[in-house]
């Protein structure tokens, strides 16, 4: 990591070099930084396989419960509910597990420890905005997680028999969308974490956020099963672009304009949230005073 960090900030101050050279160096610096951070994450996380598996089984219980409930309802209603057959529910919730693994971002609860434990003071000394380290580290962790996820996905596929019809374009859009979902959710959770700078009672704030996300993202049920007004509310919020959209991009046979529209919405929300993060981070750091140093 030490070898990579100087590259990135150097770009901003390298006024004498040509524009091309500076830009290239900057890009190379950033890629180096991210690759190194991701490698670090892989090396660190591969050690905790049991812990990671505990976490993942606990996590996979959630969609399996939804899947069982909704396929039971579908079967009772003559094989279909809200346009989903049991096989389509299976496809939805199995893809859910991958999307969930991909959109896991730094928990906002981590900030309490960072502020109280003084870890933040060290983070501030680095020449790169700390969000890059979090983005890179968790992105690397995903490599480990996905390897661990594969056997579970195979098992779920065998048991629940999903109906899958995937076109090449779905696959391409899905690949982009899961990374979009990851970046977007990271931004929002980071923003949520920054609340810690203003109050120590963060639990209720986080609860409201996660409950709204659960209901309005497609995490609990595909959004088409929600009442119309809830779907309209969801349209004004960023949540569905981090959960429901990637899933439906892969399995929902969406027309190309909806696929592109979804990616555009992700990009738009990332731009909005990144701007707020930049501003909020500055305000937050002003409020922070390290003790002891």
């Amino acid at each position: 990591m030490t070898s990579a960090t100087p590259g990135a900030p150097a770009a901003g101050s390298s006024a004498p070099s040509t524009l091309d050279g500076g830009l290239l160096a900057a890009i190379r610096g950033w890629i180096g930084f991210y690759v190194t951070t991701m490698r670090l994450a892989v090396t660190a996380q591969i050690q905790y396989r049991v812990s990671n598996y505990f976490y993942m089984i606990g996590m996979i219980a959630e969609p399996v419960i939804y899947l069982v409930v909704w396929s039971t309802v579908a079967r009772q209603q003559g094989g279909e509910v809200g346009g989903f057959t049991p096989g389509e529910f299976a496809a939805y919730y199995i893809v859910w597990t991958l999307v969930r693994n991909m959109n896991i971002a730094l928990t906002p609860y981590a900030w309490e420890e960072r502020v109280r434990g003084g870890e933040l003071a060290g983070m501030l000394l680095r020449p790169v905005h700390p969000i890059h380290f979090d983005l890179g580290f968790l992105a690397g962790w995903k490599a480990v997680v996905i390897v661990l996820w594969l056997p579970l996905a195979a098992f779920l596929t065998l048991i629940f028999q999903p109906t899958l019809a995937i076109r090449p374009i779905d696959l391409v859009v899905f690949f982009v969308a899961i990374w979009g979902a990851y970046v977007l959710r990271s931004m929002f959770l980071w923003l949520l974490g920054l609340v810690t700078f203003w109050t120590t009672r963060v639990g209720p704030v986080f609860d409201i956020f996660f409950t709204a996300e659960l209901l309005l993202s497609g995490r609990l049920v595909p959004l088409s099963l929600m009442p119309d007004w809830a779907q309209q509310v969801a349209g004004f919020l960023p949540f569905q672009w981090t959960f429901g959209f990637p899933i439906e991009a892969l399995i929902g046979q969406l027309p190309p304009e909806q696929l592109l529209g979804g990616l555009t919405m992700q990009l738009l929300w990332i731009a909005i949230s990144a701007t707020i993060v930049a501003v909020a981070w500055r305000l937050a750091v002003k409020r922070f005073s390290a003790v002891g140093g």
């Binding site: 905790y48 812990s51 505990f54 976490y55 606990g58 996590m59 219980a61 959630e62 419960i65 069982v68």
Partner: peptide, 26 residues
């Protein structure tokens, strides 16, 4: 084993299944 930090997470996840009668599960 010594380290079982995620046990809490694991149980919490599994416990949610109790929200529904276990008879509906395969």
């Amino acid at each position: 084993v010594i380290r079982m930090d995620e046990l809490h997470e694991l149980f919490e996840g599994l416990y949610q299944s109790g929200r529904w009668p276990v008879t509906i599960y395969p």
